[in-house]
Write a protein that binds this DNA or RNA. Sequence first.
DNA 1: TTAATAGTGTCTCTGAGACACTATGTG
DNA 2: CACATAGTGTCTCAGAGACACTATTAA
Lengths: 224, 224
Amino acid sequence: MTYPRPALAVDLALMTVRDGALRVLLVRRPDADTVGGDWALPGAYVRIDETLADTAQRILRDKVGLPGAYAEQLASYSALDRDPRERVISMTHLALLPAQQLAGLSDADHRLAQVHVDWPGETGGPAQAMAGGTPLPLAFDHAAILGDVVKRLRGKLDYTAIGLELLPAQFTLRQAQDIYQAILGRALTKPAFRRKLLDRDIIQPTGQREAASAFRPAELYTRK
Amino acid sequence: MTYPRPALAVDLALMTVRDGALRVLLVRRPDADTVGGDWALPGAYVRIDETLADTAQRILRDKVGLPGAYAEQLASYSALDRDPRERVISMTHLALLPAQQLAGLSDADHRLAQVHVDWPGETGGPAQAMAGGTPLPLAFDHAAILGDVVKRLRGKLDYTAIGLELLPAQFTLRQAQDIYQAILGRALTKPAFRRKLLDRDIIQPTGQREAASAFRPAELYTRK
DNA sequence: TTAATAGTGTCTCTGAGACACTATGTG
DNA sequence: CACATAGTGTCTCAGAGACACTATTAA
């Protein structure tokens, strides 16, 4: 093997829903002028003794301090000029965590930016990261990756239990509906949402009620 | 960068349907004793000046002599011991070609093996390559990859136009139904299949009829 | 009792499978 | 004319959205 090899990295799109908005964890780049943006998805090179899943969990541990989150492969990005510094192929992973587990992450170098897309359904296209109403410039091809993340999330919502990964251990159907609406970017009707989720046999009522903050408290459910 | 890097390869699952059976192109391994099987998906290392799509097309050109086929990313396989000779991560691609374009490929080193799965629908699991009623031993993790290929194909059949990639330029609805049935591994009813395909607005009648071999000839369609 | 949300019953529409039927070209 | 396949009409059933309704709890 004397051929030069492309470098292989994992970039992690850690998604959550907070305040009714789909969000992604971004880290600040020290080299914003060379990589085309201040903010980027956290990433790491794949080590010789790691699987891709290992690398994804290491990123979670190192940059977020939270291993054990749900993570799956998304897609590879291999354009020759995607990183101006070096030839690096990114095997992007998608990770999901409930917002409760991501409290206190928003320091100067970590941010849970809102994710905005200007296309409906699963049309596809790039996504924009927003913070306080203004767009955050994203490094590399991460705007395109983020768009693919949203597309994948929307596509898997109604034939997998992936949406439940964004909910705490116990949750109400209203909370679940809020999560789904934030990902899909549109309103859902309550009876249809309830039936669909209950008929799919992926959640279980606990018999308990939420802490009654105001008016009638809702039943708490858990994942099956 | 002084860290050792894993090697990155593309493996190509070139699928077709012939004689009512889903088939995959396999190449014979000269090193069957070290890699755990006689036959394998064709593959190549990713060169420093290639995207993954470039590598997939190069495999098609070199091993099949047929560039320009439909190809898409499937998934990455990165288990530490998947190749006993070297640490290599495979970014597997799925390619599709109509059987007519693969005539004359079955020499001693190339084979269009039948693909068998013992699970229904999109349950998932490994696949077996068969030739003449007997199983072909597959190298590396290629039996698992082949299973994922079938799962992906089945999943995309009814929300994309991917099935049409396996049909010649002009085709009858009966031919299309045969292709779909071979992939899905089950019979479909004629009226439902016709409506579904026609309503999706992805094919177009040509006004011509197939060469009348026997009885009433069917209308020929093309992709839109 | 009232307010506000939790939770449900019912109608309708759409898409797909089952089935039986008609249509048409060849020998 | 007979046959075998092409192509269609219709019934039914399941899933999902729309909408209006009832139920429950705190203040």
